[in-house]
Simulated scan of single mutants.
Amino acid sequence: RLVLNATGPWVDHLRKMEDPNAAPSIRLSKGAHLVLKRTSPWKAALATPIDKYRITFALPWEDMLLLGTTDEEFEGDPADVAVNDKDVTQILDEAAFSIRDQQLSRDLITYSFAGLRVLPGGPGDTSKAKRETVVTEGSGGMLSVAGGKWTTFRHIGRTVMNKLAALPGRPLADDMEPIAQLPKKLPLPGIANPNAVAHRLLVDGGTPGPRMAPETARHLATHYGSLSFDIARLANDDPALAERIHPDAPEIWAQVAYARDNEWAETVDDVLRRRTTLTIRGLDTEDVRAKVKDMLEG
């Protein structure tokens, strides 16, 4: 009875399918990031102003260094967004204002990625545009939502649900209690103190199997929270799943089984790039990829 268009950078593509004369509601800004191996210990998050509107940042992440970001208008096919040499040069040059040169060698780059910010339509530089949510209703009744930030996704969802509930004759208006009456604070799955989870994994995680390595316990605790115990049980039941996927990363094979059976992972990249850090670390070797493929198909 209602089409909700929440397609991110493709939102105006769908709006034009509904109404070829629909005016643009958003514009796109490309942001690129680099991940580098560290050359020395790094614990603090560092932000360096570039101009009145932009900063460059350096963040310790997964024992590596995350650098970024760029901000430039993007007008191509959203499916084609990618990091190019210009992006790499800009990120490294801007990072050089506050980071030593030896940490910024291109040889240290293990991964790069780019995404598109969906911003309200309007004139001016994208770096000056507000990160607001845009909600529009088309001539055919389709409701479109775009913009905002990952950190406000719950607020965006609530905004859309309230809008749906207010539409006359819509299912939510007739069949459901007002969304505003729902609890505003609901815990995310697995939410727990990571230090407490890691401690319990170290104490109990090896029973009855081999003792879990501290770096693996910490990795599981910070990525899965209390769901880590489900993964630990898999490793305890099958010692092969307690082995590391790659010796230079903390992930274990139980995470692959968990991703396959509980997180809808279907492809090798689903596991290595989207549910573990192997690809981002530059450790998705052909041998690792083949073994993950066998586990997914088995």
Rank of each mutant, 00 (worst) to 15 (best):
H13W: 15
L202R: 14
D80F: 07
T285D: 00
S98N: 02
A166H: 10
K128P: 00
W150Q: 05
R117D: 00
W253V: 02
H219T: 05
T48P: 00
P247K: 05
T151D: 01
D261G: 01
V288T: 07
T267D: 00
M161D: 01
S144A: 15
V160L: 11
L186V: 15
L167K: 14
K16S: 06
V11R: 11
V145K: 08
T285Y: 02
A114L: 11
P9I: 11
L116A: 04
T207E: 13
L186K: 10
L167C: 03
D71P: 11
T279M: 00
V288Q: 06
A249F: 13
D101F: 03
L66W: 11
P60M: 14
L296I: 13
Q102M: 05
K130H: 09
A290K: 15
N5H: 08
R154Y: 08
L36E: 05
E94Y: 10
A232W: 10
S226W: 04
T110Q: 03
F97Y: 14
T222V: 13
S29G: 15
V88K: 14
A165M: 03
L108F: 04
T216C: 07
L272D: 00
A259G: 13
L4C: 14
N21C: 10
G148P: 00
A32T: 10
I99C: 03
L46C: 09
P120V: 13
W264C: 03
M295R: 15
M64W: 08
P171L: 13
W10P: 04
P194N: 06
T216Y: 15
P208V: 14
I231Q: 02
P60T: 05
N84F: 04
P20G: 07
E137N: 13
M161P: 01
E94C: 05
I91W: 06
I109K: 09
R211P: 13
T136Q: 08
P20D: 04
G124P: 05
P168Y: 06
D12M: 14
A23H: 09
